[in-house]
Write a protein that binds this DNA or RNA. Structure first.
Lengths: 208, 208
DNA sequence: CGGCAAGTTGAGCGGACTCAATGCATGTGG
DNA sequence: CCACATGCATTGAGTCCGCTCAACTTGCCG
């Protein structure tokens, strides 16, 4: 167990606090135990824009945030379990059972990237907003009540839309009865199937 | 040297020939020695669309093509050096330094993905076309003459535009004197700096 | 010559953006 | 408590970019 624990580190962050990505002692894998992280990137004009969110229970790839100037910070009270290179190697050596396989992790990251690429390249505004909400919904375990951790402008930054368009599309979903919006940041998913249908993605394959 | 060579394989493909990605004996890393590969994905409607190109001298990540239904095929006479899991493991065991190279490879893939995400999310049609041409130009070593391996429709599939818009933007670049187009698939880059300026990317950092 | 595929060009439309005004909470000081 | 400021969200009006649809050109191969 010592070897397994060695190289692990559990850190707590408060709302807005940046997550240090020391290039020397770079964390190798990170697991968000509770809370949520945001990743900002700088665009061509040097502006910071929201790029991605990481929710509780999700993994940070060794190559995700440390890419081109990505800046991680906590959206709320967040506990992050990081595992450096040594710890990760020990873990993989001791517990092959854990499919905490680096390749599977990276594959998941690439799959997520592909979904974003499809969203940004081919989807309409309504499909983009529906997709984002559906993803948040799924990533929160399918619970009906969603608490959006970001405002309309930041939703727009992620999805390549303006804040006004995001607002209009959320309004359209509300009017269609797919969601309820008691407060701007509180979303109730009333019809998850309809929401998924509006994402423009292929329907989930049913068991034969 | 024997152990290092073990698990490597050099294959030749003709134009249009699919590259097999056997899940059992999945190639782990691939290097395009000459020629070019295309990667197609299926969209929500089940249509095949061009997703990415890999030129000579470039690497295929172990997670790139084997992702969600990606289909690799040769665009022309292509020689692909592949290295399966066994070979790669042997290589890593013998040369621990190489593991770093795998991370660098993946990092490069992620950087490329980020560029596409920026292109699809934030760029105008003219910037998208300029970016694609500038990338092809850079990836071909900065030679003035470019031979586009795909048609207008496929350029549009990669960049999220229609073939008509691609055609119009190429025409605009030609009229601006940035490129010359003796034939539809032959592009001469007349002013690489102007082309880069039109990509909408931040200017390359000059040495102070 | 005809037929086909790829490319170009034009006309018109519509969706998303821009700009601007308004609503609606929350906070803050008199 | 009220008046005011502030930040976020919503809503409206107008514009423009890129798409759709269609006609036409160009090059290639039979």
């Amino acid at each position: 167990m010592n070897r397994i624990r060695h190289g692990f580190c559990e850190d707590q962050y408060t709302r807005g606090e940046p997550v240090l990505c020391d290039p020397i002692e770079m964390p190798f894998v990170g697991l968000v135990l509770c809370g949520a992280l945001r990743e900002d990137v700088r665009d061509a004009q040097g502006e910071r824009r929201l790029f991605a969110l990481t929710f509780a229970g999700e993994l940070l790839s060794p190559l995700g945030p440390q890419r081109i100037g990505g800046q991680l910070s906590a959206l709320e009270e967040t506990v992050l379990l990081t595992c450096d290179r040594t710890g990760f190697d020990a873990l993989v050596a001791d517990i092959p059972h854990l499919r905490l396989n680096l390749l599977h992790l990276l594959q998941g990251q690439i799959a997520a990237t592909h979904r974003w690429q499809t969203l940004l390249g081919r989807k309409s505004a309504s499909e983009r907003v529906a997709s984002m909400l559906a993803w948040f919904h799924a990533r929160h375990g399918g619970k009906d009540k969603l608490l959006l951790p970001v405002n309309r402008a930041e939703l727009g930054q992620m999805s390549g839309l303006t804040l006004e368009t995001v607002s209009r599309q959320i309004h359209a979903l509300k009017k269609a009865g797919v969601i309820a919006v008691p407060q701007p940041t509180h979303i109730h998913v009333l019809d998850a199937d309809a929401l998924h249908a509006l994402t423009g993605d292929a329907p989930a394959r049913r068991a034969a």
